[in-house]
Computed example of a mutant assay.
Amino acid sequence: MAVTVNEMDGAELERLIETGAKVLADFYSKTCGPCKMLGFVLGDVAKEVDGVEIVKVCFEENPEAVKAHGVEGYPTMILFEGGAEKARLKGLQQKPLIVSTIAG
């Protein structure tokens, strides 16, 4: 049981969402302190969960994806399943909340 955290662009994210897979997308900024800390938290989350794709989408490099998903700030995590948004977490969150959100 473990998944990897992958960087992807907006187009790759859309293709992944369209497959209906369970996807946790972390919209982040490279200059954001809480975003960097969340990266470490997601690394720990990835060790405990299965059946989900965890992806990071850079806020500045993917403005179309940010707009398409109504992301207003960073870090913002959106859980997609079956091609639709299932949950949204804003700001730096702790591992137990992220794991329980994925477990749904």
Rank of each mutant, 00 (worst) to 15 (best):
D26F: 01
E14N: 09
G51D: 05
I78E: 04
C58E: 13
K95S: 05
V52T: 04
C35Q: 04
A84F: 07
L42I: 04
T19Q: 09
K30S: 13
P34D: 01
E53L: 01
G20L: 08
L92E: 00
R15K: 15
C35P: 09
A68G: 07
K86C: 04
C58R: 05
K36W: 00
L89M: 15
L24G: 05
G20N: 14
E81F: 02
A87R: 13
E85Y: 03
K86H: 07
G73I: 01
Q93L: 05
R15Y: 00
A68W: 05
D44Y: 07
F40N: 08
V99W: 12
P96K: 13
K47F: 09
E60Y: 09
V99Y: 11
G43W: 09
M8Q: 12
E7M: 00
K22C: 11
D9P: 02
G73L: 10
G51A: 07
V66F: 03
G73M: 13
G10L: 07
K95L: 13
F59A: 06
A68Y: 06
V71R: 02
S29M: 07
Q94T: 02
M37D: 02
E60K: 12
S100N: 15
E64C: 00
K95G: 03
G20Y: 11
A87M: 08
D26V: 00
K56I: 01
A21Q: 14
G83H: 08
I54T: 04
G70N: 14
E85A: 13
D50H: 07
E60P: 05
V99K: 15
V49Q: 14
E64D: 14
G39E: 01
V5Y: 03
K30M: 03
V23W: 02
A21L: 11
D50Y: 03
M37R: 15
K86V: 11
P63L: 10
S29N: 04
K22P: 02
V66P: 00
I78Y: 08
L13P: 01
A2I: 02
P75A: 11
P34K: 12
K36S: 02
A46D: 06
A11I: 08
A65I: 05
